[in-house]
Amino acid sequence: MTDTLLSPEPSLRQSEGLFRVRQLLDNVEARPAPSLIAEPAKLNPPPSKAYFFWLMAPAILLLACISLYPFFWMIYMSLHDVEIGSATWNNFENFTRLVTDTRYLKGWTLLFQYSLMCLALQIGIGVFLAVVLNGSRFEKILVTTLLMPMMMAPIVAGLVWYFLYNGTFGWYHWLFQSVGLLDAKSILASPGTAMLGIVLVDVWQWTPLITLITLAGLKRVPQDQLEANMVDGASPLRNFFSITLPNLYPVLLIAVMLRFMDNFRFIDSALVLTGGGPGNATKILPIYLFEVSFKFFKLGRGAAIALTLLVVTIILGMILVKVFDRQQTRKS
């Protein structure tokens, strides 16, 4: 006690005391509130997966109800003779009959023929257009204009083209005739040209998508490689084939797969343009399936056809996902 009182420098001691108080106060502020120390679980809960599973449950359940459940129904239906309100087992007859069903087999051939024709034209025109547009003065406005057809309902596109192709008052028909490509018969009326007719509509509507995808890919072509090549004396054409195109392959692959699957998915415009005719010249498989199921209401047979179509699409999808994955790993 006396020691403190008799200290030679009281002012110093006092300031020291103040300092202690400050330190204590600081300490209190820096430390978490006592209540939180008592319950650390609330501050930092252990990472629980249950929460996330609950969050995704509604979507997954709904999706299961509207896709998985129908899928099993489809298998069930494909093994039965389905009438309204009844289904009788028929010993895989739906499937065995497919093997000899010429229209079914021809449907596959026509589907691939249709898809390949669409793809060849779309890739050719689309890539060329992208290369030409890339970096041009009016790129933005031109691309936006090109987008227009993609927004159109395919059924409306089909109807408009049906009007343009018409043998008596169609403007495109008039054009084809005037140039000398066609005689009086409309492009959709003769079996030889009908396929080209529906392909052109698909090309009209979806080439811009290829152009857009290619443009996105072109922006990622390494400029330094192009430059180095040019310094070495390569012509622009050589540059395109040895640098630009290899860099585009991954995006083009995606574009091809997407369009291929969409050709399987959508038949709206073909349905309204030819409905599979003339004869069976454009009866691609989905149209045949549509007829069997919803015109003749042979739902069992339809389900069998649908199942084969679905399996092929899923295989294509697997390839697509593989490509996506490789794309992702390359980026990172």
Binding site: L68, Y69, V82, M261, R265, G302, I305, A306, G317, V321
Partner: peptide, 30 residues
Amino acid sequence: DFKGKSDLFFWIISTRMAPVVAVMVPLYAI
């Protein structure tokens, strides 16, 4: 991350890619 996540993903994407006509046959019946 959990086991089977990529399978779940594939199922989700294949639902989207399935041909409309093919999906519609059972969906119509249901």
